[in-house]
Design a protein around this nucleic acid. Sequence first.
DNA 1: CATAATTCCTACCTTTATAGTAGGTATTAT
DNA 2: ATAATACCTACTATAAAGGTAGGAATTATG
Lengths: 133, 133
Amino acid sequence: MKVTTKTKYALLSLSEFDSVDKVISIRQLSEKYSISRKYLERIFCDLESCGIVEGKRGPKGGYRLSKPPSDITLKEIIKSLEKEVKVIDCEEIRLQCPFNDKCKMIPFWKNLNKIIENYLGSITLEQILKEEV
Amino acid sequence: MKVTTKTKYALLSLSEFDSVDKVISIRQLSEKYSISRKYLERIFCDLESCGIVEGKRGPKGGYRLSKPPSDITLKEIIKSLEKEVKVIDCEEIRLQCPFNDKCKMIPFWKNLNKIIENYLGSITLEQILKEEV
DNA sequence: CATAATTCCTACCTTTATAGTAGGTATTAT
DNA sequence: ATAATACCTACTATAAAGGTAGGAATTATG
């Protein structure tokens, strides 16, 4: 029931990008937060492939947000790194339960997932930056 | 960010105890849900040590709830099996962040934890049984 | 153009936590 | 006495997380 360090590192790092123009290199981030450079590189590849940041190579290169912080939800970010923003997979539970639809736990798990998803979907990176959370 | 199978098994099992008087053996539960008997035994030891169920040995023995389902919250149950009902440990994040109190992620993580805790604390086993969730 | 700084790519290794097993002891209804 | 149950402790296997390693591609700059 814990978020992975990938997600923690990603969010710590992203909280540095306070505008769409800001370019920051992996080196800077890894030094500032004492996170392994190679590991951060991989994290940013995930973020890039999900359309959250875009990289530019070469000297003075680095990463920037690929859209304004107000358009990036925490759900989106977390989904880039964890496979799902779900605490449990209802289908999986359903398989284990011999009573299928009669299983009394399913509605609870679904609600829990939904509550988390809704919250994460409602918070944007901008709110984090402006400390409105 | 996933709940463990221990928790899943525990909740599936507990959803069978529809009154304080109902006594169910590990054998019955493990057969009904095809869960390893030994593993279930350990799960129920955890539940017992946290005051949720109590066991009685011998033939016709088994487990029963140690208080009415309306007094058992899901938070309590999950806490018996996962160490914490937190998605992240804020203190831990604080240590990694060189800026300590200035870290912009802390309020977000705290809120997320709180939302989950509040929800889990608000749901009782009775509600699950009565399908009010 | 050479260089150095960066992203980008792929494969591998290490550690940790989860999931599950094994074998047995204590208790108790019949 | 027996058999069914909870209870206890130690061990093993597996999967996932966390992290390394080495290098290729790209690009600003002197």
